[in-house]
Design a protein around this nucleic acid. Sequence first.
RNA 1: GGCCCGGUGGUCAAGCGGUCAAGACACCGCCCUUUCACGGCGGUAUCACGAGUUCGAUUCUCGUCCGGGUCACCA
Length: 547
Amino acid sequence: MDYKALAELLFPEVTETPEDMEARFPVRNYPENAVITRMAPSPTGFVHLGNLVQGLTSERMAHQSCGVLFLRVEDTDAKREVEGAVEVLINTLKHYGINFDEGATIDGDSGDYGPYRQRQRAAIYHVYAKKLILEGMAYPCFCTEEELSEMREKQEANKENFGYYGKYAVWRDRSIEDIKAEMEKGKPWVLRFRSTGSIENQFKYNDLVKGELTITENDIDQVLLKSDGIPTYHFAHAVDDHLMRTTHVVRGDEWLPSLPFHIQLFKALGFKLPKYVHIGPLMKMDGNSKRKLSKRKDPELALTFYKAEGFPVEAVYEYIMTLLNSNYEDWRRANPIAPSTDFKFSPKKLNPAGNLFDYLKLCDVSKNEIAKMDAETVYSRLVEYTEEFDTEFAQLLKADKEYAVKILAIGRGGKKPRKDLATWKEAKPYMGFFYDKYLEAPVFEEKFEKELIKDVLNKYLAAFDFADDQNTWFNKVKAITEEIGFTTDMKAYKADPTAFKGTVTDVSTFLRVAITGKTNSPDLYTVTQILGYERTCERVKNAINSL
RNA sequence: GGCCCGGUGGUCAAGCGGUCAAGACACCGCCCUUUCACGGCGGUAUCACGAGUUCGAUUCUCGUCCGGGUCACCA
Protein backbone atom coordinates (compact mmCIF):
# COMPACT_ATOMS: atom_id res chain seq x y z
CA MET A 1 0.00 0.00 0.00
CA ASP A 2 1.23 3.44 -0.92
CA TYR A 3 0.50 5.35 2.29
CA LYS A 4 1.73 8.60 0.87
CA ALA A 5 -0.75 8.40 -1.99
CA LEU A 6 -3.51 7.49 0.46
CA ALA A 7 -2.67 10.42 2.72
CA GLU A 8 -2.77 12.81 -0.21
CA LEU A 9 -5.99 11.30 -1.46
CA LEU A 10 -7.70 11.76 1.91
CA PHE A 11 -6.15 15.03 3.06
CA PRO A 12 -4.91 16.97 0.05
CA GLU A 13 -5.53 20.29 1.82
CA VAL A 14 -3.34 19.52 4.81
CA THR A 15 0.08 21.06 4.35
CA GLU A 16 1.12 21.60 7.93
CA THR A 17 3.07 19.00 9.85
CA PRO A 18 3.21 17.87 13.46
CA GLU A 19 6.46 19.80 13.73
CA ASP A 20 4.58 22.97 12.82
CA MET A 21 2.14 22.22 15.61
CA GLU A 22 4.92 21.67 18.10
CA ALA A 23 6.29 25.07 17.20
CA ARG A 24 2.91 26.74 17.45
CA PHE A 25 2.13 25.26 20.85
CA PRO A 26 5.45 25.12 22.66
CA VAL A 27 6.04 23.22 25.86
CA ARG A 28 4.91 25.33 28.77
CA ASN A 29 7.53 26.83 30.95
CA TYR A 30 6.43 25.50 34.33
CA PRO A 31 8.21 23.68 37.11
CA GLU A 32 8.23 19.89 37.02
CA ASN A 33 5.57 19.42 39.68
CA ALA A 34 3.09 22.02 38.39
CA VAL A 35 -0.16 20.41 37.33
CA ILE A 36 -1.48 21.59 33.98
CA THR A 37 -5.03 20.36 33.70
CA ARG A 38 -8.38 21.13 32.29
CA MET A 39 -12.06 20.78 32.50
CA ALA A 40 -13.42 19.44 29.27
CA PRO A 41 -17.20 19.23 29.39
CA SER A 42 -19.55 18.93 26.48
CA PRO A 43 -22.05 21.72 26.13
CA THR A 44 -25.27 19.81 26.65
CA GLY A 45 -26.88 22.51 28.76
CA PHE A 46 -26.96 20.26 31.80
CA VAL A 47 -24.35 20.91 34.46
CA HIS A 48 -24.31 18.26 37.12
CA LEU A 49 -22.66 17.31 40.36
CA GLY A 50 -20.21 15.09 38.49
CA ASN A 51 -18.96 18.11 36.56
CA LEU A 52 -18.43 19.91 39.83
CA VAL A 53 -16.62 16.99 41.44
CA GLN A 54 -14.34 16.71 38.45
CA GLY A 55 -13.90 20.47 38.25
CA LEU A 56 -13.05 20.88 41.91
CA THR A 57 -10.51 18.09 41.74
CA SER A 58 -8.86 19.63 38.69
CA GLU A 59 -8.97 23.09 40.14
CA ARG A 60 -7.36 22.08 43.42
CA MET A 61 -4.67 20.04 41.74
CA ALA A 62 -3.81 22.82 39.32
CA HIS A 63 -3.86 25.77 41.66
CA GLN A 64 -2.32 24.18 44.69
CA SER A 65 0.65 23.20 42.55
CA CYS A 66 0.81 26.69 40.98
CA GLY A 67 -0.11 25.15 37.64
CA VAL A 68 -2.79 25.93 35.11
CA LEU A 69 -6.47 25.16 34.87
CA PHE A 70 -8.10 25.73 31.52
CA LEU A 71 -11.51 25.17 30.04
CA ARG A 72 -11.90 23.28 26.80
CA VAL A 73 -15.30 22.83 25.27
CA GLU A 74 -15.83 19.38 23.83
CA ASP A 75 -18.36 20.21 21.19
CA THR A 76 -17.48 17.46 18.75
CA ASP A 77 -20.99 16.09 18.81
CA ALA A 78 -23.09 18.64 17.03
CA LYS A 79 -26.24 16.57 17.61
CA ARG A 80 -26.11 16.97 21.37
CA GLU A 81 -25.20 20.59 21.49
CA VAL A 82 -27.70 22.94 23.04
CA GLU A 83 -27.96 26.62 22.28
CA GLY A 84 -26.37 28.78 24.97
CA ALA A 85 -24.99 25.78 26.83
CA VAL A 86 -21.45 27.14 26.92
CA GLU A 87 -22.64 30.27 28.71
CA VAL A 88 -24.61 28.22 31.23
CA LEU A 89 -21.58 26.07 31.81
CA ILE A 90 -19.16 28.92 32.32
CA ASN A 91 -21.50 30.87 34.58
CA THR A 92 -22.34 27.85 36.69
CA LEU A 93 -18.73 26.87 37.22
CA LYS A 94 -17.83 30.41 38.11
CA HIS A 95 -20.71 30.49 40.56
CA TYR A 96 -19.16 27.52 42.34
CA GLY A 97 -15.78 29.15 42.53
CA ILE A 98 -13.97 27.34 39.76
CA ASN A 99 -11.83 29.94 38.10
CA PHE A 100 -10.01 29.22 34.89
CA ASP A 101 -6.65 30.60 33.96
CA GLU A 102 -7.29 30.21 30.30
CA GLY A 103 -9.60 28.65 27.76
CA ALA A 104 -13.09 29.23 26.50
CA THR A 105 -14.88 32.26 27.95
CA ILE A 106 -18.25 33.86 27.39
CA ASP A 107 -16.86 36.08 24.67
CA GLY A 108 -14.29 34.00 22.89
CA ASP A 109 -11.06 32.41 23.99
CA SER A 110 -8.25 33.50 26.20
CA GLY A 111 -4.84 31.85 26.16
CA ASP A 112 -2.08 30.76 23.80
CA TYR A 113 -3.12 27.17 23.29
CA GLY A 114 -6.46 27.71 21.58
CA PRO A 115 -8.81 27.56 20.00
CA TYR A 116 -10.45 25.95 23.03
CA ARG A 117 -13.56 24.78 21.24
CA GLN A 118 -12.88 21.51 19.51
CA ARG A 119 -14.90 22.08 16.36
CA GLN A 120 -12.66 25.04 15.64
CA ARG A 121 -9.63 22.77 15.82
CA ALA A 122 -10.56 20.51 12.91
CA ALA A 123 -7.50 21.51 10.85
CA ILE A 124 -5.21 20.63 13.76
CA TYR A 125 -6.62 17.14 14.10
CA HIS A 126 -6.26 16.62 10.36
CA VAL A 127 -2.54 17.24 10.57
CA TYR A 128 -2.23 14.27 12.90
CA ALA A 129 -4.73 12.23 10.93
CA LYS A 130 -2.55 12.64 7.87
CA LYS A 131 0.53 11.73 9.84
CA LEU A 132 -1.05 8.49 11.04
CA ILE A 133 -2.11 7.56 7.52
CA LEU A 134 1.36 8.30 6.23
CA GLU A 135 2.75 5.90 8.79
CA GLY A 136 0.20 3.21 8.05
CA MET A 137 -1.54 3.60 11.39
CA ALA A 138 -4.90 4.81 10.13
CA TYR A 139 -7.17 4.07 7.22
CA PRO A 140 -10.57 5.04 5.87
CA CYS A 141 -13.60 2.84 6.45
CA PHE A 142 -16.73 3.05 4.34
CA CYS A 143 -18.95 0.78 6.40
CA THR A 144 -22.51 1.97 6.78
CA GLU A 145 -24.43 2.02 10.02
CA GLU A 146 -26.41 -1.02 8.82
CA GLU A 147 -23.28 -3.00 8.08
CA LEU A 148 -21.93 -2.18 11.50
CA SER A 149 -25.05 -3.26 13.34
CA GLU A 150 -25.18 -6.46 11.27
CA MET A 151 -21.64 -7.10 12.38
CA ARG A 152 -22.66 -6.60 15.96
CA GLU A 153 -25.59 -8.98 15.67
CA LYS A 154 -23.37 -11.61 14.16
CA GLN A 155 -20.90 -11.22 16.98
CA GLU A 156 -23.64 -11.50 19.54
CA ALA A 157 -24.94 -14.65 17.89
CA ASN A 158 -21.46 -16.16 17.75
CA LYS A 159 -20.72 -15.06 21.32
CA GLU A 160 -17.68 -13.18 20.11
CA ASN A 161 -16.35 -9.90 21.42
CA PHE A 162 -18.03 -6.89 19.94
CA GLY A 163 -16.28 -4.37 17.76
CA TYR A 164 -14.44 -3.61 14.59
CA TYR A 165 -11.36 -5.82 14.77
CA GLY A 166 -9.62 -8.75 13.11
CA LYS A 167 -11.72 -10.30 10.36
CA TYR A 168 -14.48 -7.79 11.05
CA ALA A 169 -12.18 -4.93 10.14
CA VAL A 170 -13.16 -5.22 6.51
CA TRP A 171 -11.63 -1.98 5.28
CA ARG A 172 -8.37 -2.49 7.03
CA ASP A 173 -6.34 -3.68 4.08
CA ARG A 174 -8.37 -2.64 1.09
CA SER A 175 -6.54 -1.41 -1.97
CA ILE A 176 -6.22 2.24 -2.75
CA GLU A 177 -8.27 1.61 -5.89
CA ASP A 178 -11.22 0.35 -3.84
CA ILE A 179 -10.96 3.41 -1.62
CA LYS A 180 -10.80 5.72 -4.61
CA ALA A 181 -13.81 4.05 -6.14
CA GLU A 182 -15.92 4.57 -3.02
CA MET A 183 -14.80 8.16 -2.75
CA GLU A 184 -15.73 8.84 -6.30
CA LYS A 185 -19.19 7.55 -5.54
CA GLY A 186 -19.29 10.22 -2.84
CA LYS A 187 -19.60 7.66 -0.05
CA PRO A 188 -18.98 8.99 3.47
CA TRP A 189 -16.08 7.51 5.37
CA VAL A 190 -14.57 7.57 8.82
CA LEU A 191 -10.92 7.34 9.69
CA ARG A 192 -10.03 4.32 11.79
CA PHE A 193 -6.98 3.53 13.85
CA ARG A 194 -5.09 0.43 12.78
CA SER A 195 -4.66 -1.39 16.05
CA THR A 196 -1.71 -3.68 16.50
CA GLY A 197 -2.75 -4.63 20.03
CA SER A 198 -3.86 -8.06 21.17
CA ILE A 199 -6.23 -8.96 23.96
CA GLU A 200 -3.75 -11.67 24.85
CA ASN A 201 -1.40 -9.04 26.20
CA GLN A 202 -1.72 -7.28 29.53
CA PHE A 203 0.35 -4.69 31.28
CA LYS A 204 0.26 -2.59 34.43
CA TYR A 205 -0.63 1.04 34.64
CA ASN A 206 -0.78 3.36 37.64
CA ASP A 207 -3.79 5.59 38.04
CA LEU A 208 -3.63 8.37 40.64
CA VAL A 209 -6.92 7.31 42.24
CA LYS A 210 -7.26 3.64 41.45
CA GLY A 211 -3.65 2.67 41.90
CA GLU A 212 -2.23 -0.18 39.89
CA LEU A 213 -4.49 -1.24 37.04
CA THR A 214 -4.26 -4.28 34.87
CA ILE A 215 -4.70 -3.18 31.30
CA THR A 216 -5.58 -5.48 28.44
CA GLU A 217 -4.37 -4.23 25.08
CA ASN A 218 -6.91 -2.80 22.71
CA ASP A 219 -7.43 -4.70 19.46
CA ILE A 220 -10.28 -2.64 18.06
CA ASP A 221 -9.84 -0.27 15.15
CA GLN A 222 -11.55 2.66 16.79
CA VAL A 223 -12.88 5.63 14.89
CA LEU A 224 -10.57 8.63 14.95
CA LEU A 225 -12.45 11.00 12.70
CA LYS A 226 -16.18 10.87 12.11
CA SER A 227 -17.59 11.23 8.63
CA ASP A 228 -17.98 14.97 9.14
CA GLY A 229 -14.22 15.22 9.66
CA ILE A 230 -14.62 16.01 13.36
CA PRO A 231 -12.69 13.77 15.75
CA THR A 232 -14.16 11.40 18.27
CA TYR A 233 -13.43 12.07 21.93
CA HIS A 234 -10.45 9.74 21.87
CA PHE A 235 -8.57 11.41 19.08
CA ALA A 236 -9.39 14.91 20.26
CA HIS A 237 -8.27 13.99 23.76
CA ALA A 238 -4.89 12.80 22.55
CA VAL A 239 -4.21 15.70 20.22
CA ASP A 240 -5.55 18.44 22.46
CA ASP A 241 -4.08 17.31 25.71
CA HIS A 242 -0.74 16.89 24.04
CA LEU A 243 -0.74 20.26 22.32
CA MET A 244 -2.22 22.06 25.30
CA ARG A 245 0.52 20.46 27.33
CA THR A 246 -1.80 18.85 29.85
CA THR A 247 0.07 16.95 32.54
CA HIS A 248 -2.96 15.50 34.38
CA VAL A 249 -6.29 14.29 33.11
CA VAL A 250 -9.09 14.20 35.67
CA ARG A 251 -12.21 12.41 34.44
CA GLY A 252 -14.92 9.96 35.45
CA ASP A 253 -13.99 6.32 35.66
CA GLU A 254 -16.47 5.43 32.94
CA TRP A 255 -13.43 6.21 30.77
CA LEU A 256 -11.37 3.41 32.24
CA PRO A 257 -12.39 0.89 29.57
CA SER A 258 -11.05 3.16 26.84
CA LEU A 259 -7.79 3.84 28.64
CA PRO A 260 -6.01 1.00 26.80
CA PHE A 261 -6.89 2.67 23.53
CA HIS A 262 -5.77 6.07 24.76
CA ILE A 263 -2.43 4.72 25.88
CA GLN A 264 -2.04 3.08 22.50
CA LEU A 265 -2.99 6.26 20.67
CA PHE A 266 -0.61 8.49 22.58
CA LYS A 267 2.15 6.08 21.80
CA ALA A 268 1.28 5.92 18.12
CA LEU A 269 1.29 9.69 17.91
CA GLY A 270 4.58 9.95 19.76
CA PHE A 271 2.98 11.87 22.63
CA LYS A 272 3.92 11.67 26.26
CA LEU A 273 1.10 10.12 28.26
CA PRO A 274 -0.43 12.42 30.89
CA LYS A 275 -1.15 11.16 34.38
CA TYR A 276 -4.72 10.02 34.84
CA VAL A 277 -7.03 10.65 37.77
CA HIS A 278 -10.10 8.46 37.31
CA ILE A 279 -12.89 9.46 39.67
CA GLY A 280 -15.53 6.97 40.74
CA PRO A 281 -19.19 7.71 40.10
CA LEU A 282 -21.53 9.49 42.48
CA MET A 283 -24.10 7.07 43.81
CA LYS A 284 -27.28 7.29 45.80
CA MET A 285 -29.37 4.92 47.86
CA ASP A 286 -32.28 3.51 45.93
CA GLY A 287 -34.23 1.27 48.27
CA ASN A 288 -31.65 -1.11 49.61
CA SER A 289 -29.08 -0.79 46.89
CA LYS A 290 -26.72 1.82 45.59
CA ARG A 291 -26.79 3.04 42.06
CA LYS A 292 -25.21 5.73 40.00
CA LEU A 293 -26.95 9.08 40.14
CA SER A 294 -28.99 9.33 37.01
CA LYS A 295 -29.88 12.38 35.02
CA ARG A 296 -33.37 11.09 34.31
CA LYS A 297 -34.37 9.89 37.78
CA ASP A 298 -32.52 12.13 40.19
CA PRO A 299 -33.18 15.85 40.28
CA GLU A 300 -30.39 16.27 42.83
CA LEU A 301 -27.83 15.51 40.15
CA ALA A 302 -28.37 18.87 38.49
CA LEU A 303 -26.55 21.84 39.93
CA THR A 304 -29.64 23.93 39.36
CA PHE A 305 -31.34 21.83 42.04
CA TYR A 306 -29.06 23.18 44.76
CA LYS A 307 -29.61 26.69 43.63
CA ALA A 308 -33.36 26.27 43.66
CA GLU A 309 -33.31 24.65 47.11
CA GLY A 310 -31.17 27.52 48.28
CA PHE A 311 -28.01 25.77 49.38
CA PRO A 312 -25.24 28.34 49.66
CA VAL A 313 -22.46 27.56 47.20
CA GLU A 314 -20.01 27.34 50.08
CA ALA A 315 -22.05 24.50 51.52
CA VAL A 316 -22.03 22.51 48.31
CA TYR A 317 -18.32 23.19 48.00
CA GLU A 318 -17.57 22.09 51.56
CA TYR A 319 -19.68 18.99 51.19
CA ILE A 320 -18.02 17.94 47.97
CA MET A 321 -14.62 18.49 49.50
CA THR A 322 -15.52 16.15 52.35
CA LEU A 323 -16.61 13.57 49.82
CA LEU A 324 -13.40 13.88 47.87
CA ASN A 325 -10.99 14.04 50.80
CA SER A 326 -12.64 12.77 53.94
CA ASN A 327 -9.97 14.36 56.13
CA TYR A 328 -11.17 17.73 54.89
CA GLU A 329 -13.84 17.63 57.58
CA ASP A 330 -11.28 17.24 60.36
CA TRP A 331 -9.16 19.94 58.85
CA ARG A 332 -12.14 22.25 58.68
CA ARG A 333 -12.97 21.69 62.32
CA ALA A 334 -9.43 22.61 63.25
CA ASN A 335 -9.45 25.60 60.88
CA PRO A 336 -12.98 26.95 60.89
CA ILE A 337 -12.30 30.21 59.15
CA ALA A 338 -9.30 29.39 56.96
CA PRO A 339 -9.86 29.64 53.21
CA SER A 340 -10.54 26.20 51.79
CA THR A 341 -7.57 26.63 49.50
CA ASP A 342 -5.28 26.19 52.51
CA PHE A 343 -6.31 22.57 52.69
CA LYS A 344 -3.84 20.14 51.17
CA PHE A 345 -5.88 18.27 48.62
CA SER A 346 -4.78 14.83 47.55
CA PRO A 347 -6.16 12.83 44.62
CA LYS A 348 -4.97 9.67 46.35
CA LYS A 349 -7.60 10.21 49.01
CA LEU A 350 -10.47 9.88 46.59
CA ASN A 351 -12.54 6.78 47.10
CA PRO A 352 -11.80 4.53 44.11
CA ALA A 353 -15.26 3.00 44.35
CA GLY A 354 -17.11 6.29 44.14
CA ASN A 355 -19.16 8.08 46.77
CA LEU A 356 -22.66 7.83 47.96
CA PHE A 357 -24.34 11.17 47.94
CA ASP A 358 -25.83 11.93 51.36
CA TYR A 359 -28.41 14.67 51.33
CA LEU A 360 -28.70 14.84 55.12
CA LYS A 361 -25.00 15.34 55.47
CA LEU A 362 -25.14 18.15 52.95
CA CYS A 363 -27.85 19.76 55.08
CA ASP A 364 -25.69 19.48 58.16
CA VAL A 365 -22.70 21.01 56.39
CA SER A 366 -24.94 23.74 55.08
CA LYS A 367 -26.33 24.57 58.53
CA ASN A 368 -22.80 25.06 59.75
CA GLU A 369 -21.93 27.26 56.81
CA ILE A 370 -24.93 29.49 57.28
CA ALA A 371 -24.31 29.64 61.03
CA LYS A 372 -20.86 31.06 60.30
CA MET A 373 -22.27 34.02 58.37
CA ASP A 374 -23.14 37.32 59.98
CA ALA A 375 -26.67 38.68 59.79
CA GLU A 376 -25.89 41.18 57.04
CA THR A 377 -24.47 38.43 54.86
CA VAL A 378 -27.38 36.15 55.54
CA TYR A 379 -29.71 38.98 54.67
CA SER A 380 -28.13 39.75 51.34
CA ARG A 381 -27.86 36.09 50.39
CA LEU A 382 -31.46 35.52 51.32
CA VAL A 383 -32.58 38.52 49.30
CA GLU A 384 -30.59 37.25 46.35
CA TYR A 385 -32.30 33.88 46.63
CA THR A 386 -35.82 35.14 47.16
CA GLU A 387 -35.51 37.62 44.32
CA GLU A 388 -35.18 34.64 42.04
CA PHE A 389 -37.46 32.11 43.72
CA ASP A 390 -39.93 33.96 45.96
CA THR A 391 -40.36 37.53 44.85
CA GLU A 392 -43.19 38.23 47.28
CA PHE A 393 -40.99 37.37 50.25
CA ALA A 394 -38.14 39.31 48.69
CA GLN A 395 -40.31 42.43 48.63
CA LEU A 396 -41.05 42.09 52.33
CA LEU A 397 -37.40 41.57 53.17
CA LYS A 398 -36.36 44.58 51.17
CA ALA A 399 -39.17 46.82 52.42
CA ASP A 400 -37.53 46.99 55.85
CA LYS A 401 -33.97 45.79 55.80
CA GLU A 402 -33.21 46.78 59.37
CA TYR A 403 -36.11 44.68 60.62
CA ALA A 404 -35.10 41.65 58.57
CA VAL A 405 -31.50 41.86 59.72
CA LYS A 406 -32.63 42.06 63.34
CA ILE A 407 -34.61 38.85 62.86
CA LEU A 408 -31.73 37.12 61.16
CA ALA A 409 -29.37 38.23 63.92
CA ILE A 410 -31.23 36.19 66.56
CA GLY A 411 -28.84 33.71 68.10
CA ARG A 412 -26.20 34.47 65.50
CA GLY A 413 -22.55 34.77 66.42
CA GLY A 414 -21.13 33.75 69.77
CA LYS A 415 -19.88 30.35 70.79
CA LYS A 416 -23.07 28.41 70.24
CA PRO A 417 -24.85 29.96 67.28
CA ARG A 418 -28.28 28.73 66.35
CA LYS A 419 -28.40 26.46 63.35
CA ASP A 420 -31.89 26.82 62.07
CA LEU A 421 -31.31 27.06 58.38
CA ALA A 422 -29.83 24.54 55.99
CA THR A 423 -31.18 26.30 52.92
CA TRP A 424 -32.56 29.71 52.03
CA LYS A 425 -35.80 28.02 51.18
CA GLU A 426 -36.25 27.21 54.86
CA ALA A 427 -36.06 30.87 55.86
CA LYS A 428 -39.71 31.59 55.23
CA PRO A 429 -41.13 28.78 57.39
CA TYR A 430 -38.59 29.74 60.06
CA MET A 431 -39.12 33.49 60.25
CA GLY A 432 -42.31 34.07 58.30
CA PHE A 433 -44.32 34.78 61.46
CA PHE A 434 -42.48 38.07 61.87
CA TYR A 435 -44.46 39.26 58.87
CA ASP A 436 -48.20 39.66 59.37
CA LYS A 437 -48.77 38.35 55.89
CA TYR A 438 -47.34 34.94 56.81
CA LEU A 439 -48.56 34.78 60.39
CA GLU A 440 -50.66 31.67 60.95
CA ALA A 441 -53.80 31.66 63.04
CA PRO A 442 -53.10 30.46 66.59
CA VAL A 443 -54.07 26.89 67.40
CA PHE A 444 -53.95 26.02 71.10
CA GLU A 445 -53.63 22.66 72.73
CA GLU A 446 -57.05 21.15 73.31
CA LYS A 447 -56.26 19.72 76.70
CA PHE A 448 -56.43 23.20 78.22
CA GLU A 449 -59.65 25.14 78.77
CA LYS A 450 -60.13 28.06 76.42
CA GLU A 451 -61.08 30.25 79.34
CA LEU A 452 -57.83 29.45 81.07
CA ILE A 453 -55.81 30.39 78.01
CA LYS A 454 -57.80 33.58 77.65
CA ASP A 455 -57.10 34.36 81.26
CA VAL A 456 -53.38 33.86 80.77
CA LEU A 457 -53.31 36.05 77.69
CA ASN A 458 -55.26 38.82 79.44
CA LYS A 459 -52.96 38.67 82.42
CA TYR A 460 -49.99 38.90 80.09
CA LEU A 461 -51.47 41.90 78.34
CA ALA A 462 -51.92 43.62 81.67
CA ALA A 463 -48.41 42.85 82.89
CA PHE A 464 -46.51 43.25 79.64
CA ASP A 465 -44.11 46.16 79.66
CA PHE A 466 -41.94 46.71 76.62
CA ALA A 467 -39.21 48.25 78.73
CA ASP A 468 -38.68 45.10 80.77
CA ASP A 469 -35.43 43.26 80.42
CA GLN A 470 -35.46 39.56 79.75
CA ASN A 471 -35.29 38.58 83.40
CA THR A 472 -38.09 40.82 84.49
CA TRP A 473 -40.17 39.71 81.55
CA PHE A 474 -39.76 36.06 82.39
CA ASN A 475 -40.43 36.66 86.07
CA LYS A 476 -43.78 38.10 85.04
CA VAL A 477 -44.50 34.98 83.01
CA LYS A 478 -43.66 32.93 86.07
CA ALA A 479 -45.92 35.05 88.23
CA ILE A 480 -48.82 34.44 85.85
CA THR A 481 -47.99 30.76 85.93
CA GLU A 482 -48.33 30.62 89.67
CA GLU A 483 -51.44 32.78 89.71
CA ILE A 484 -53.31 30.21 87.64
CA GLY A 485 -52.05 27.35 89.77
CA PHE A 486 -49.43 26.01 87.38
CA THR A 487 -45.91 25.29 88.60
CA THR A 488 -42.60 26.89 87.75
CA ASP A 489 -40.72 24.08 89.40
CA MET A 490 -39.85 21.88 86.47
CA LYS A 491 -37.92 19.40 88.59
CA ALA A 492 -40.88 18.76 90.81
CA TYR A 493 -43.08 18.46 87.77
CA LYS A 494 -40.77 15.95 86.23
CA ALA A 495 -40.70 13.88 89.37
CA ASP A 496 -44.49 13.70 89.45
CA PRO A 497 -46.36 15.24 86.51
CA THR A 498 -49.74 14.19 87.87
CA ALA A 499 -49.36 16.51 90.83
CA PHE A 500 -49.71 19.63 88.67
CA LYS A 501 -52.29 21.15 86.35
CA GLY A 502 -49.60 22.55 84.16
CA THR A 503 -46.25 24.28 84.07
CA VAL A 504 -44.49 27.42 82.99
CA THR A 505 -43.75 25.62 79.75
CA ASP A 506 -47.45 25.43 79.02
CA VAL A 507 -47.92 29.09 79.81
CA SER A 508 -45.01 30.00 77.57
CA THR A 509 -46.54 27.95 74.83
CA PHE A 510 -49.84 29.83 75.11
CA LEU A 511 -47.96 33.07 74.67
CA ARG A 512 -45.80 31.69 71.92
CA VAL A 513 -48.74 30.40 69.93
CA ALA A 514 -50.57 33.68 70.40
CA ILE A 515 -47.62 35.77 69.29
CA THR A 516 -45.99 33.62 66.61
CA GLY A 517 -48.73 31.22 65.53
CA LYS A 518 -46.29 28.39 66.15
CA THR A 519 -45.35 26.11 69.02
CA ASN A 520 -41.68 26.73 68.52
CA SER A 521 -39.65 29.80 67.81
CA PRO A 522 -36.50 31.49 68.99
CA ASP A 523 -36.58 33.00 72.46
CA LEU A 524 -39.99 34.66 72.93
CA TYR A 525 -38.74 37.73 74.75
CA THR A 526 -36.42 38.53 71.85
CA VAL A 527 -39.26 37.97 69.43
CA THR A 528 -41.45 40.49 71.24
CA GLN A 529 -38.63 43.01 71.29
CA ILE A 530 -38.27 42.76 67.54
CA LEU A 531 -42.00 42.75 66.87
CA GLY A 532 -42.47 45.83 69.01
CA TYR A 533 -45.03 46.70 71.68
CA GLU A 534 -47.96 47.48 69.43
CA ARG A 535 -47.78 44.39 67.28
CA THR A 536 -47.17 42.08 70.19
CA CYS A 537 -50.24 43.36 72.02
CA GLU A 538 -52.30 43.28 68.87
CA ARG A 539 -51.40 39.66 68.24
CA VAL A 540 -52.25 38.66 71.78
CA LYS A 541 -55.59 40.50 71.53
CA ASN A 542 -56.38 38.79 68.26
CA ALA A 543 -55.61 35.45 69.83
CA ILE A 544 -57.98 36.21 72.72
CA ASN A 545 -60.71 37.12 70.27
CA SER A 546 -60.18 33.91 68.34
CA LEU A 547 -60.84 31.82 71.44
C1' G B 1 -21.67 -12.41 27.44
C1' G B 2 -16.29 -10.20 27.25
C1' C B 3 -13.16 -6.75 29.71
C1' C B 4 -12.20 -3.44 33.87
C1' C B 5 -12.98 -1.37 38.84
C1' G B 6 -14.70 -1.86 43.75
C1' G B 7 -16.64 -4.21 48.76
C1' U B 8 -14.79 -1.42 56.92
C1' G B 9 -21.39 0.46 61.04
C1' G B 10 -27.66 3.01 57.84
C1' U B 11 -24.15 6.88 55.29
C1' C B 12 -19.06 9.45 54.67
C1' A B 13 -14.85 7.08 56.27
C1' A B 14 -9.47 6.41 59.24
C1' G B 15 -6.56 2.25 59.70
C1' C B 16 -3.23 -1.42 55.32
C1' G B 17 0.05 -7.71 59.37
C1' G B 18 -0.63 -7.40 66.34
C1' U B 19 -5.83 -1.28 67.33
C1' C B 20 -10.65 -1.98 73.28
C1' A B 21 -11.18 -1.01 64.55
C1' A B 22 -10.59 6.74 65.13
C1' G B 23 -13.79 10.68 63.79
C1' A B 24 -18.29 12.92 61.27
C1' C B 25 -23.66 12.57 59.64
C1' A B 26 -28.11 9.95 60.96
C1' C B 27 -30.59 7.37 65.02
C1' C B 28 -31.61 6.48 70.49
C1' G B 29 -31.04 8.02 75.77
C1' C B 30 -29.62 11.61 79.48
C1' C B 31 -28.15 16.76 80.83
C1' C B 32 -28.90 22.05 79.78
C1' U B 33 -33.52 24.55 78.72
C1' U B 34 -40.07 28.68 78.67
C1' U B 35 -40.60 25.81 73.01
C1' C B 36 -37.30 25.26 69.02
C1' A B 37 -32.29 25.51 67.46
C1' C B 38 -27.46 25.14 69.70
C1' G B 39 -24.22 22.88 73.23
C1' G B 40 -22.47 18.76 76.74
C1' C B 41 -22.34 13.49 78.05
C1' G B 42 -23.42 8.51 76.80
C1' G B 43 -25.35 4.48 73.61
C1' U B 44 -26.81 0.92 69.39
C1' A B 45 -24.15 -0.61 65.09
C1' U B 46 -18.98 -2.34 60.77
C1' C B 47 -14.16 -5.31 58.61
C1' A B 48 -19.27 -9.61 52.35
C1' C B 49 -18.18 -15.09 52.41
C1' G B 50 -14.71 -19.36 51.95
C1' A B 51 -9.89 -21.13 51.55
C1' G B 52 -4.59 -20.13 51.80
C1' U B 53 0.22 -17.47 53.58
C1' U B 54 1.59 -16.29 58.73
C1' C B 55 2.87 -17.24 65.55
C1' G B 56 -1.09 -13.71 64.22
C1' A B 57 -5.11 -11.34 59.22
C1' U B 58 -9.81 -5.90 58.29
C1' U B 59 -4.92 -5.39 56.24
C1' C B 60 -1.24 -10.08 51.71
C1' U B 61 -2.88 -14.20 47.80
C1' C B 62 -6.69 -17.05 45.40
C1' G B 63 -11.79 -18.39 44.73
C1' U B 64 -17.07 -17.25 45.47
C1' C B 65 -20.80 -13.77 45.99
C1' C B 66 -22.51 -8.90 45.57
C1' G B 67 -22.25 -3.81 43.63
C1' G B 68 -20.57 -0.53 39.74
C1' G B 69 -18.67 0.79 34.89
C1' U B 70 -18.03 -0.22 29.71
C1' C B 71 -18.26 -2.63 24.93
C1' A B 72 -21.27 4.06 19.27
C1' C B 73 -19.34 8.03 13.49
C1' C B 74 -21.77 10.21 22.58
C1' A B 75 -18.73 12.38 25.49
